[in-house]
Design a protein around this nucleic acid. Structure first.
Lengths: 351, 351
DNA sequence: TTTAGCACTCGAAGGTGTTAACTGCTAAAC
DNA sequence: GTTTAGCAGTTAACACCTTCGAGTGCTAAA
């Protein structure tokens, strides 16, 4: 649809705009980008690119700015691989090779690394609770009225919570609970800890509602809690020229403080590995001035979370995507080679 | 030292400045604060208050602004009780009466409540690890190469961590570990999990360094981790007029992102219940434009954490202090009446 | 001792002119 | 037919004023 020259010009404009954050003039790219045409020729092409919808103009006598359509074309057709520098690679390696004891820690480190390298705000969520199944459930008595419940999932996640009771419970009760939970729920999805299961326990066990109710309640809370939500580099936006207006910065900070929106934004379903949403492509209206790039972090084919970058539309897409790809590969390498995160195989019961 | 009239004028100026954030003129307080003197008289007094160091002037023809010394005098001598509104009291009650299962949750809720009521940024830390003693330690085998360690402290805190091993460990080993830890450490401060203890384990147990090293390492990490650090209302500062300059807002956001500084700031030693640091009184130079108000949250005489508010020097001190006092009392009431947080008495060992 | 009155200071706001960086268009050159 | 030099037109940004209002400090009278 666009001839070669238009593509080159469009690419030059967007590259330039990503760098400078200022409307791009015909003259500047004629010089810098080694296009062997005069600025006048480029001006003509730019005018056509504008009518075709790839470019916008803040005002009559100003340079051009990419439109959402322009960015989309750029991302789909013009993106070139950004080769990471040796330092960047080393930095990522050193971060990801740190010994971690659980997935949460890994996600935290990854989120931080991504933010440090790209200088954008990074958000992450753990695996969707309703794709995980229960590997094992443990109950540990802490004192006479306090219990700790630990759930191991097939994603390798360990979730634990504390439950308090108004009455004493004893080890025998805990053992029975442990048997009932594991017998009934092993291999089931996390959501299997629900109302019907609670009713089942009421029927099958002699314990009062006073014991079972808080357990189920607290475990449901544990599962649906958004506590595995990570945010890094909030303050990075202050360095971007588009946020020199306090109004916008405030909006942005408030936006990423809204967990619901952020969770929604990372809930990319079963889409492919890297997803890009540019401006208006975002479902949420408040996000229309931003671009989001997300990727799913998997072990085998198990979803262990989604990590996303949220930044201005003139985001350095090629850098962001390169880093994401590299990190994704590294994560997979680490897991398969070092078996850091294999699932606990055949956990033994205490006799 | 200051006569009654000067005190009244100083109070009026500071009250007004806390409200308006703008230099206060002689005329405005003559009118608003029912002082039966003309603006000229007040001007004379203001000039004297300025030479005495209680007031500053941004420029020759502007109104007056309180100095650090002025604020200090205000806080020490002029502060009146701010009676909380019924709505505020109800709001606090509803928040604090929520059933919580651990101290972390309570701290989180308290921090959030404090921020919502005062509209300032609130920070909190859990109890200082070196004032807590070990009540009990539990080890739970999760699979063959993964262990969960749970530490109960006398503050009622439950800290847990996951430890991974390169080789298998078995239940017998875990039982021995459990015996060794509890036998040696019960009643000791958290810091007793240290190098000498690690060496003691090496000597006394037949297990390889491969088992003991990661356990000690991870538990030390758990204890010294600043993970019980809470921050609420970061974005609230954007509503304050002093942060209309992006530069300052950026500074503030970066400042409270530095955990070290924040932890330092909350580390008020064994000082009295409510501490106020105004401007230059803060040790850290970066805090010289802010005021910090902290209070220690105790159960009995056990420190369970410190909560602080960080805001502009023209903070609404009387409101902040009233809310803190009220919350502090409420927390104590809840604990003593409902025995929500009594320590686990005489925990039973599984046989 | 208090206060009215006044000269003085200063920042904020708004208006004006200039400049520089663009564009679009036209007509000539290739 | 395509490209380009050249030029008029547009606009934001900036520096520079002026004006205005809200203050103060001081003096002299009450």
């Amino acid at each position: 649809m666009l001839n070669e020259r238009k593509k080159r010009i469009l690419q030059a404009i967007i590259d330039e705009y990503i760098n400078s954050a200022e409307p791009v003039s015909s003259g500047s790219i004629a010089k810098k980008y080694g296009l062997n045409f005069s600025s006048a020729t480029i001006r003509n092409e730019m005018a056509e690119l504008e009518t075709a919808g790839y470019l916008d103009k803040p005002h009559t006598s100003s340079g051009r700015v990419p439109s959402d359509k322009g960015y989309r074309f750029y991302v789909n057709e013009l993106l070139k691989d950004d080769n990471l520098s040796l330092e960047e690679i080393k930095y990522i390696q050193s971060k990801l090779e740190m010994k971690v004891n659980n997935i949460e820690e890994l996600t935290k480190i990854t989120t931080n690394t991504l933010s440090e390298i790209t200088h954008y705000t990074t958000v992450a969520v753990g695996p969707n609770p309703n794709v995980q199944t229960i590997e094992e459930i443990k109950f540990i008595l802490l004192g006479t009225r306090m219990l700790m419940a630990v759930i191991l999932t097939d994603s390798g996640l360990v979730k634990e919570t504390i439950i308090k009771f108004d009455d004493d419970i004893n080890q025998e009760q805990v053992d029975t609970l442990s048997y009932m939970f594991n017998n009934k729920l092993k291999g089931k999805p996390l959501e299997a800890i629900d109302q019907p299961f609670e009713e089942y326990l009421f029927r099958e066990m002699k314990y009062s509602v006073k014991v079972i109710r808080p357990i189920i309640e607290q475990m449901k809370k544990l599962i649906n809690d958004e506590k595995d939500f990570y945010l890094e580099g909030t303050n990075k936006v202050f360095d971007l020229p588009e946020f020199k207006s306090l109004e916008l910065a405030k909006k942005f900070i408030n936006l990423i403080d809204e967990k619901d929106i952020m969770l929604d934004l990372l809930d990319t379903g079963f889409a492919q590995d890297i997803n890009i949403y540019i401006g208006d492509e975002n479902d949420n209206d408040q996000l229309k001035d931003f671009s989001i790039v997300t990727f799913k972090h998997r072990i085998g084919n198990k979803d262990v979370g989604t990590i996303g970058i949220i930044g201005p539309k003139r985001m350095n897409y090629s850098k962001v995507i390169s880093v994401m790809k590299y990190i994704n590969r590294k994560l997979n390498d680490n897991q398969t080679n070092e078996e850091n995160f294999e699932q606990p195989e055949e956990p033994k019961e205490e006799s």
